[in-house]
């Protein structure tokens, strides 16, 4: 049976080609992470990708599905590695990637059927399970010094440091320049809808402004931009229509800022999971009539937009 991975803008490209382009767009962030946090960042990235890929291979064998390489596990492994703290012990990316693939993807039957974003799920699992390991972030360049991530100490970094990534944080989330380069690649190739990062970022900034917080600082700190370009735009786990995606992005923005301002924690991965779960309901109210119609009609609708 052919599996549709949802309404991609590049209807003529196959999954493998799209996934490899996403990997390409993630490379600037990975390079920046390795530049700032050194060899361990590279190790984490390699182990996470291998973990995801091997788990997928075994899982597809058990499910009795073709084990052809489509790149989706590689993307999951890479994204998961980039949202892990660089000080994580080396078993963390392996355990996280394996859990993400099994629990959030393979149990649902593989690519295109999962409800939740596997990488976000993997990180949430790690955060809830191994809080002590996941909550310490080394300062860039130093090995042993543990610094608070930017959010916990609002106002202590300059905008320039935040933008270039010279701050403590997750491997791929610190360098906003690299994230934006990757995001622009995806938008230029027509692989993601620019409305999602735009609406998400604007919602967060407006809420920060209304709450009297520093909007630019909120935009540039934590995992906001990375999530905006690489996690909130995942084909499978976001709404079908433009209208649905805008609702999704705005909802994610509200929840991100509510937890940041009222709880004081960075819970973007949690909120991605939550909003992923809302997607079928958003689709129910935004897709005109024909929920569940074959691909052809979805694509026709796509062209109208």
């Amino acid at each position: 049976m052919e599996v549709s991975i949802g309404p991609h803008i590049r209807g003529d490209w196959d999954t493998k080609r799209i996934m490899l382009c996403v990997v390409l767009a993630l490379i600037p962030s990975a390079v920046a992470g390795i530049y700032y946090f050194g060899y361990t960042a590279l190790e984490i990235i390699v182990l996470s990708v291998l973990g995801a890929q091997i788990t997928e291979l075994i899982g597809l064998k058990v499910l009795g599905k073709p084990t052809e390489f489509d790149g989706s596990a590689m993307v999951t492994g890479l994204i998961l590695a980039l949202i892990l703290p660089p000080s994580a012990p080396l078993w963390v990316p392996i355990v996280g990637a394996a859990f993400a693939m099994v629990f959030f993807k393979l149990l649902f039957g593989g690519l295109g059927k999962n409800i939740f974003n596997p990488a976000a799920g993997g990180r949430v699992f790690l955060l809830l399970s191994f809080a002590a390991v996941m909550a310490s972030f080394p300062a860039p360049g130093a090995d042993a010094v543990t610094a608070a991530s930017p959010l916990a100490s609002t106002g202590s970094y300059s905008y320039m440091d935040l933008f270039l990534g010279n701050v403590s944080g997750s491997i791929g989330e610190t360098c906003k320049l690299a994230i934006i380069i990757g995001g622009v690649i995806l938008i230029a190739l027509g692989l993601i809808d620019y409305a999602v990062p735009l609406v998400y970022a604007l919602t967060c900034m407006v809420i920060a402004l209304v709450a009297g917080a520093d909007s630019l600082y909120h935009l540039l700190s934590g995992g906001l931009l990375f999530a905006a370009f690489f996690m909130a735009t995942d084909y499978v786990t976001t709404p079908i229509t433009r209208r649905g995606r805008v609702i999704f992005a705005a909802g994610l923005g509200v929840l991100t800022m509510v937890t940041r301002l009222m709880v004081g924690t960075e819970s973007i991965s949690f909120m991605i999971l939550f909003m992923n779960g809302l997607v079928p309901m958003i689709d129910r109210f935004t897709v005109p009539r024909s929920f569940g119609q074959p691909k052809k009609e979805r694509r026709a609708r796509k062209n109208e937009q």
Partner: peptide
Amino acid sequence: PFQVGVLQQPAGGYIVMAGYLI
């Protein structure tokens, strides 16, 4: 020698139950 924190939380109940059931 270590703890898998999530299993003490409500989600842990669902995860283990899912494991057995499947």
